[in-house]
Every structure is written in structure tokens, then in C-alpha cells.
């Protein structure tokens, strides 16, 4: 699903960053470990097509990202990728349910009614589905963000520090949720983090320096 080889990237006016090679198959899980400033987020954004202009090769679902035009990248993101961030940024103007359904509309995918209901059920959001997102708890917001990331049944899930701000109990809960959901939709799960607690759960890791 993800193949990274000989990738380097240079911000304008910054140093050249080199990234280790790795690959991730369908349903596999991998940690991208490293301290702040080691380039975890940069690599994650490169794989997500949010940053362009890398050297080397990044393939997602067999497609070399460099060869895609901007709109093709948008479509790839919408259909094949799901993103989870440390800040579970939700669209404040919308309800829980609308935030999840937003993914289908923006990704240009038909709303899979059954899948969405199932997700809300699994993530215990059904009761809150019509609540505005500014009236739900942090934990619920995190679950909405996860539901939104997998609403379109992506083949890869890219998570950026999903647990760093959480205590042990919640950290454990969120990582389990992510893994379960990834497993359910058979997606490859790539987590960029400096949170070493996750090593106890996911054995595969790549260290960035």
C-alpha cells in the first residue's frame, strides 16, 4: 500500500531531510518514531500528498505520487486515504453526523449509509449524531475524527501524533480503536509519533533521526 524509497525533501531555505526506506502492506501497521523536528510530520505529509516536490519514490496503492496532478492527488486522498491528527479538528458549524458525512461528499464518494451507521454504532456516536460538535466531549470528538477518517473505507490511514496529548487510559483506548477500525476496513495504518507507549502495542517501527 505504501512504498517509500530513497526519499529526501528540502524546505525552502531549510536543510535536506533524508528518510529511511520502508513499505507497508494492506492491513499492516507501522510506527514512524522520532523526536520533534525529526521530520515525522513532513514525511507523513509527503505520503499524504499534502507536500510535493520530493526526491526519490513514494507510492501509495501502487501509484507514484509525483506523477499525479493536484486534483488527482485530491481524489486519491479522498478515496484511498484517511487522516487523523493530534488536534481532532472538526467543522464547528456542523453536527457529529454531518462531520462524518462531509468525508463522502468532499471525497466524491457515494455515501455508504450502512457503513456510516455501523461506524457511529461502533464508536458510540449514534446518540450524539445530531449534536453540534461544540457540545460533545473531547473523547467523543476524537471518535468523530476517527469515524471521519475511515468513512470512505481508505486503504491507508495516516495518523499524526494521535495519542501524544492523552493520558495512559485514553491513549490505550484511542490506539485500540484506530487499530480495530483499520483492521475492519483492511487499511494500512501508519502512525507518526514520539509517544513510546505505542511501541508496546505496535511492534513494527521505523526510527527517524
Amino acid at each position: 500500500m505504501i512504498e517509500v524509497s530513497h526519499v529526501s525533501y528540502k524546505y525552502r531555505g531549510g536543510n535536506l531531510m533524508r528518510f529511511p526506506d520502508f513499505s507497508l502492506r494492506k492491513g499492516e501497521q507501522l510506527l514512524l518514531l522520532g523526536q520533534s523536528g525529526s521530520g515525522k510530520t513532513t514525511l507523513l505529509h509527503l505520503i499524504g500528498g499534502l507536500l510535493r516536490g520530493y526526491e526519490g519514490s513514494i507510492k501509495v496503492d501502487g501509484v507514484e505520487l509525483r506523477d499525479l496532478r493536484e486534483t488527482e492527488l485530491d481524489h486519491l486522498r479522498g478515496k484511498k486515504m484517511g487522516f487523523v491528527f493530534q488536534r481532532n479538528h472538526l467543522v464547528q458549524a456542523l453536527t457529529v453526523q454531518q462531520n462524518i458525512r462531509l468525508a463522502a461528499w468532499l471525497g466524491g464518494v457515494r455515501e455508504d449509509e450502512q457503513h456510516i451507521h455501523h461506524l457511529m454504532d461502533v464508536l458510540q456516536l449514534t446518540e450524539k449524531r445530531k449534536s453540534p460538535v461544540n457540545r460533545i466531549s473531547q473523547g467523543q470528538a476524537q471518535r468523530v475524527a476517527i469515524a471521519r477518517a475511515v468513512a470512505n473505507k481508505p486503504v491507508v490511514i495516516l495518523a499524526d501524533e494521535p495519542t501524544s496529548a492523552l493520558d495512559d487510559v485514553n491513549c490505550n483506548r484511542v490506539i485500540r480503536l484506530l487499530m480495530d477500525i483499520a483492521h475492519e476496513v483492511q487499511a494500512a495504518l501508519l502512525i507518526a509519533t514520539h509517544d513510546h507507549r505505542l511501541k508496546n502495542v505496535i511492534a513494527n517501527s521505523v526510527e527517524l533521526k
Binding site: 499524504g48 493536484e70 481524489h75 478515496k79 467543522v91 468525508a103 468532499l106
Partner: peptide, 16 residues
């Protein structure tokens, strides 16, 4: 700005 960035990660094109 953050809303829009999130929407882009969800697959929204610039034109949308």
C-alpha cells in the same frame, strides 16, 4: 483555515 485544510485532506479539490 484549519477547516479548509482538513477538507483538503478529506479529498476536497481547491475548486470545491
Amino acid at each position: 483555515r484549519y477547516d479548509l485544510a482538513i477538507m483538503r485532506t478529506l479529498g476536497a479539490t481547491r475548486f470545491k
